Amino acid sequence: MNVIKDTFFDGERPCFAAHDTRFEHVKFYPGESAVKHSQNVEAFQCEFLSKYVFWHNENVVVDDCLFTPYGRTAIWYSKNVKVLNTQVDAPKMFRECDNIFVENVKFADAQETGWNCRDIELRNVEAKKGDYFFMNARNATVENLNLQGNYSFQDAKNVVIRNSHLDSKDAFWGSENVTVYDSVIDGEFMGWHSKNLRLVNCTIRGTQALCYCKDLVLENCIMEGTDLSFEYSTVNADIISDVISVKNPAGGRIHAKAIGEIVIDEHCINPGECEITVG
């Protein structure tokens, strides 16, 4: 592998179509598309101040690097990408990528990161300002994600999340086949219009949670500050805490330690089709 080290590049496309190349201690100063259309490239302890760095690439490893706020929109339309031990201060990090592995990475500005990506693995990731984090994701496994940002995993499909904390209003809207284990989801209006959303040993916080869901499952979950929950949802829920209120569920069963108020009004579409028990 060709090694380029202890230097800098700037301007447009300085390393266009590189292949079998390792960059070590290289600074990419302002410019565009520095390593575009490349194959089999590695970056170790590099600093990126240029945007659109790794577009249309295949087989990329980024380790112990820094993407400054100027290094936005860094990895798009690429395949087989590993990002390890890296600080990302720029938004829109991934889009339209296949086979992404991200481990020990901190995103200081994760807005619009991960859109329309497929076959994703995230481990030990911290993401701030993460609005629309991994929207339209397909086939993702997530372990130990600490996310602050709304509308996360919107319209995502086939996602498994474990041991994570999502501070995220409107998480999982329109999602399908999502399972979350041993996690905290803190944010109002979560899960609306989802299909096959399953929450296991989770803590759920926020108003009007889990409405308009189809085939929703809760196992051994805690609900805190959750009022007007489950409206128009079909649900199978075992909740080990109190629930402030439940409103007009469409069908299934809900069992909770206690429910402060059950609202079944003239707008209920299937009166009596949901079994609600406490104790």
Rank of each mutant, 00 (worst) to 15 (best):
N2C: 09
D6E: 13
D10H: 13
E12T: 11
E12R: 06
P14I: 03
C15W: 04
F16P: 00
F16K: 15
A18G: 08
H19M: 13
R22Q: 15
E24T: 06
E24V: 06
H25G: 05
F28I: 04
P30E: 09
G31R: 06
S33I: 06
A34M: 12
A34W: 06
V41S: 00
V41Y: 00
C46P: 02
F48A: 03
L49V: 01
L49E: 12
K51Q: 14
Y52P: 01
W55N: 07
W55L: 12
N57R: 02
E58R: 09
N59R: 13
V60E: 00
C65N: 03
F67T: 06
F67E: 01
F67L: 13
R72A: 15
T73P: 00
I75K: 00
W76N: 07
K79F: 03
V81Y: 00
K82F: 08
L84T: 02
L84F: 11
N85R: 14
V88I: 15
K92R: 13
E96V: 10
E96M: 10
C97A: 08
C97T: 11
I100A: 02
F101R: 07
V105Q: 01
K106F: 08
K106W: 07
A110V: 06
Q111A: 10
E112F: 14
W115N: 14
C117S: 13
D119F: 09
D119Y: 11
E121A: 09
E121R: 14
R123Q: 15
N124T: 05
E126C: 05
K128R: 14
D131P: 00
F134K: 02
M135P: 00
R138T: 10
R138L: 10
N139L: 10
N139D: 15
T141L: 05
L145Q: 04
L147H: 05
G149V: 03
N150V: 04
Q154V: 06
K157I: 12
N158P: 01
N158G: 05
V159H: 04
V160I: 15
V160H: 05
I161D: 01
I161L: 10
N163A: 07
N163S: 14
K169M: 13
A171S: 12
G174I: 05
S175Q: 04
E176A: 11
V178K: 04
T179M: 04
S183V: 03
V184S: 08
I185A: 01
I185S: 01
G187C: 05
M190F: 11
L197T: 02
N201W: 04
N201L: 07
T203F: 02
R205L: 12
G206T: 04
T207E: 14
Y212N: 15
K214E: 15
D215M: 02
L216A: 07
V217F: 08
I222M: 12
D227V: 00
F230I: 05
F230D: 03
S233E: 07
D238S: 13
D238E: 15
S241M: 03
I244N: 09
I244R: 10
K247L: 10
N248A: 07
N248S: 06
G251Q: 07
G252S: 09
R253N: 14
I254W: 02
K257F: 11
A258N: 13
D265G: 08
D265E: 10
H267I: 11
I269Y: 06
P271R: 11
E273C: 10
C274Y: 04
E275S: 13
E275F: 05
